[in-house]
Simulated scan of single mutants.
Amino acid sequence: MKKIILAAAAVAFATPAMAAPGDTAQDSGTAVAEIVAPIAITHDGGALDFGIIIPATTAGTVVVTQGGAGSVTGDTLFVSGSTNAADSFTVTGDAGRAYSIVTTGGSVTSGGNSMTFTTDAPASGTLSATGSDNFSVGGTLNVGANQAAGSYSGSYDATVSYN
């Protein structure tokens, strides 16, 4: 019995052993980044040209397609020999990347007179293998009844962004 008491006392007063280190593991992750060429847009010159118009006693419209073809509605007429033209832009950036296009409308003015217009452009495009693309903008001009004579001009915005 003496041995049991001595063994119990030795256990009670023993210095606790240091805990053995637990299992640890380590692995590495990866980080990536891709740098693309900035997207840019350049107006090619020219203008969205609604042509030379004769207004009527009722309102009408002039429509120019993205291909540059013009037509009128209502009693609005083109002056004989009048030409129409779509506007055009060049987009540059990262080769093969898709992008979206947004254009705004606005108004054209002459003196204190104005006419509103909307634009018509493709919703998107894809840059070529060389990193460029072109698109055209058409539109619809609202011609008022008995619209005042004058040379009307205005502007609109075209914005492109990567998809």
Rank of each mutant, 00 (worst) to 15 (best):
D27R: 14
T42R: 08
G111K: 06
T61G: 02
A148N: 10
T104A: 10
N163L: 14
T30M: 09
A17P: 00
I39P: 00
T118L: 09
T103C: 05
T57C: 02
I101P: 04
V108P: 06
R97C: 00
V64M: 00
A7H: 10
F117I: 03
G111F: 00
L141W: 08
A123K: 06
L6P: 00
T76M: 04
T116P: 02
D133T: 02
A56Q: 01
G131Y: 04
L141S: 08
D157A: 12
V108S: 04
D23F: 14
D157Y: 03
S80Y: 11
A20W: 13
D87C: 02
V143I: 11
F78H: 11
P21H: 12
A86W: 07
G68S: 04
T83C: 01
A59R: 01
D49I: 07
R97T: 12
S71Q: 10
I54A: 08
H43L: 02
A14K: 05
G106Q: 04
D94S: 12
H43R: 03
G105L: 07
A9Y: 13
S28M: 15
G29L: 12
D120G: 10
T92M: 02
G68L: 05
G45H: 05
T57D: 13
H43D: 14
I53F: 11
V91W: 04
T76E: 03
T140P: 00
S100E: 14
A17N: 04
D44L: 10
N163C: 00
F50S: 01
N84H: 06
S136F: 08
D157L: 09
V79G: 03
D27V: 15
S128M: 01
P21V: 13
T42A: 12
S100M: 10
V102G: 03
A14E: 03
I5C: 09
A10W: 06
